[in-house]
Amino acid sequence: MIVTVKIVETYTKYEEVEIEDTGKLDEAYEDVDEMVKTNKILLPSIDKKSEYNLSIKLV
């Protein structure tokens, strides 16, 4: 029997960062993206302190 299995890995973390308040949401996202690119914010999958959840479901 062949079945399809859906596997979802979820890494979650919250980090407070300071960005300039320009009133433009797009600029805030760009600032955060730059912080991720330059490793000022580590991705949750890399950061050992992140919450991890694994979900497996037959579909």
Rank of each mutant, 00 (worst) to 15 (best):
M1A: 15
M1C: 14
M1Y: 13
I2P: 04
V3S: 15
V3G: 12
T4F: 10
V5Q: 14
V5D: 09
K6W: 03
K6P: 03
I7G: 03
V8L: 12
V8M: 13
V8E: 09
E9G: 02
E9Y: 11
T10R: 10
T10Q: 05
Y11T: 01
K13R: 15
E15C: 06
E15K: 12
V17A: 07
V17N: 03
V17G: 04
I19P: 09
E20T: 07
E20A: 10
E20N: 08
E20M: 06
D21S: 12
T22F: 03
T22W: 00
K24P: 06
K24I: 14
K24N: 10
L25F: 13
D26F: 09
A28T: 01
Y29V: 00
D31F: 06
D31T: 06
D31C: 02
V32Y: 01
V32N: 05
V32D: 03
D33R: 07
E34R: 13
M35T: 06
M35F: 00
M35N: 00
V36W: 03
T38H: 00
T38E: 05
T38P: 01
N39K: 06
S45K: 12
I46M: 10
I46R: 11
I46L: 13
D47E: 11
D47H: 03
D47P: 04
K48Q: 07
K48R: 10
K49W: 05
K49I: 12
S50Y: 01
E51F: 10
Y52A: 08
Y52N: 07
Y52K: 07
L54Q: 04
L54I: 11
S55Q: 15
I56C: 09
K57E: 10
V59F: 09
V59T: 14
